[in-house]
């Protein structure tokens, strides 16, 4: 049976932990807000790009193909796993990796973005081709580096299909691992889930008449496609970061709550024990007095 001193020590330890998790929760919530703002800041860009794509697609000749849209039957696949760098964010990475295992490992190479993904891939002894890092506030340059690498691999014929697995940010409480078929570009709809801008482009074409393209619609579209991919990758990184921070916030909030509950229980235990020892002492004194008297 632990003495009062042991309990006191435990209370102190739990209090320290609660302080740390509380601080982490604050930091995560501040970062989460920033990540959400960053995702919003990309929207005008997405809108404009959607509109341009809509205009270009209407203008191009129907038999237009681009090497990035080429469908091949090679069957060599590449999976990009976008995870966090640090842990302490609840079940975020675990669910992500469980999903990754469903992909199957035959004929597949892996690419990691984020340190946890790299650790996972090497732990499972899967072939790792490249490892990328991205900062806490993802930069477009970082997304472009990943996207360029994937495009090069694809165009060089190293892989025939590229998929991306990342955590989609749904709300502060919900994040879901999601698949994105990155290459080849099967259908060109819009850069992100938002379809705004697209309709405007079609409308614009209908009313404004013919667009001129310099040098030609095909060439502009050909140049736009890599950008389209870069931007998609950028959005993936932003989503992952927003998910990470909100998952960490929730996990840390739970940890803080648990710690506080534990402190309460321990304090109760401590007081009971203290009272018991005082009562015992009083009894001893009383008994001693009676024996003397």
């Amino acid at each position: 049976m632990p003495g009062t001193r042991d309990i006191r020590r435990r209370i102190r330890a739990v209090k320290n932990t609660a302080q740390i998790t509380k601080a982490m929760q604050m930091v995560a919530s501040a970062k989460m807000r920033k990540a959400q703002l960053a995702a919003l800041a990309g929207r005008p860009y997405a809108q404009t790009m959607n509109r341009m794509l809509a205009e270009l697609l209407a203008a191009r000749s129907t038999d237009f193909t681009h090497p990035l849209m080429e469908r091949r039957n090679g069957g060599r696949r590449c999976l990009v796993i976008v995870s966090t760098d640090k842990g302490l964010c609840g079940p975020l990475n675990t669910t992500l990796f469980r999903e990754a295992l469903k992909y199957g490992r035959e004929n597949t190479v892996f690419i990691a973005a984020g340190r946890k993904a790299a650790q996972f891939i090497s732990r499972m002894r899967l072939p790792l081709v490249a490892e990328f890092t991205y900062k806490d506030s993802p930069q477009f340059e970082e997304a472009r580096a990943i996207s360029r690498f994937l495009q090069d691999q694809f165009l060089a014929g190293e892989v025939d299909q590229v998929d991306v697995l990342f955590t989609n940010f749904i709300s502060t409480l919900a994040q879901r691992p999601e698949w994105l078929a990155f290459l080849p570009i099967a259908e060109l709809r819009s850069v992100s889930a938002e379809h705004e801008g697209e309709a405007m482009g079609e409308e614009l074409r209908a009313s404004g008449g013919e667009f001129l393209f310099e040098p030609s619609a095909e060439q502009v579209l050909g140049a736009l496609l890599p950008h389209y991919l870069n931007f998609r990758m950028y959005q993936v990184l932003l989503e992952s970061k927003a998910s990470e921070h909100s998952a960490r916030m929730v996990a840390m909030k739970n940890a803080t709550d648990n710690a506080n509950q534990l402190i309460k229980d321990l304090t109760l235990e401590y007081n009971k024990m203290r009272q018991a020892s005082i009562t015992k002492e009083l009894l001893e004194i009383a008994t001693a007095q009676m024996a003397l008297g």
């Binding site: 404004g208 667009f211 001129l212 393209f213 310099e214 040098p215 060439q219 140049a223």
Partner: peptide, 18 residues
């Protein structure tokens, strides 16, 4: 632009370029 410097005034023809 990709094909040289361009000056654009209002009422320019619809155009898209790099």
């Amino acid at each position: 632009g990709i094909e040289g410097e361009m000056g654009i005034y209002p009422q320019h023809v619809p155009l898209m370029t790099q």
